[in-house]
Amino acid sequence: MTVLATADIRRLRYAPLTFWVWGGVLIAAGTVWKILKATGVKPWRLGFVRRLAEAFGGDALWVSVPLALAAMTALGVAGALGLHALTWSRYRLERTAEGGLTVRRGLSGKDAVSIAPDQLCGVALREPLLLRAGGGASVRAVAGGLGNRDQNRTRSVVLPPSPKAEAERVCAGVLGEGEGVDVAGLRGHPRAGLRRRVVAALGWWVLPVVVVLAVLGWLLALPVLLACAAGWALAVTPVALILARDAYRGLGHAVRGRYLVVRSGTFGRETVTLARNAVQAWTFTDTPFALRAGVVTLTAAVPGGEDGYRIRDMSAAEAAEFAEYAAPGIVREFLIDTDA
């Protein structure tokens, strides 16, 4: 029995590094609204609510809007810290002698998740955008037998947001690999992947809004909408390009010893290390556009975690051979024998 990680108050600083700081406040506000509606309270009839709304809509919007945003952020940060403290106090991650894992956590310290060694098929280092910007990462075990997909997502977390170095150390510990599996210097993906990401980012974020605003502005003869369309295009295009580039640079895959390493994502960057012998199936997915670009998405199926882990937009010419190399014997008999 080895202890891989224990509770550490300093981890609290990574807790607010998530978009849920704002999303959580919105959800809480929605819940309060629903409760008020169900109990028949009409908030706009209350004097202080009306005075607040009038003050907000007054002449100093350039003060009140940032103030409201700051208040929302403060509320969200407080919520994130509280939730982290509730969930991860008395946390303790242990690896059993047989290679299984035990995660204890919660206020009582009695909430425990046990992962049997034969259910563990890998580990995922997760770096959502804000956490990555703050130099942190969290770790999930890729394991089966933890309930349905949603239950698996909460129960498989073996390390809360922490410094990246610690997350890497825990990843190595979970796999029982002393020095860890090297996830640096992965094989990059073809240039076509960058073009596809740029096209997708512009096509989903920039084009629809600009077209809708421009058509409305033209039909309703409102030049202000045309100006909005131009403003949106100018403001969002650089962000979309930066994110597309980041997504492309994040792509990578490699075989390292007994493991298959796959990395992808920009909002949710994830580096997954899977046991090669846990792969049960390979799926090659493409579209007419991917076919023309010479790329294919290869999915490794494992009995645990998200079930399928995708190597997005890898070179179509290499995909079949990579699948055979990474998990031998599955695709072999369906390959064309060129050696003969």
Binding site: Q280, A281, W282, T283, F284, T285, D286, T287, L291, A301, P303, A323, G329, I330, V331, F334
Partner: peptide, 11 residues
């Protein structure tokens, strides 16, 4: 989306 899937019989 064209999908080609190869499943090991052992699983």
């Amino acid at each position: 989306w064209r999908r080609r899937r190869i499943v090991a019989l052992a699983g």
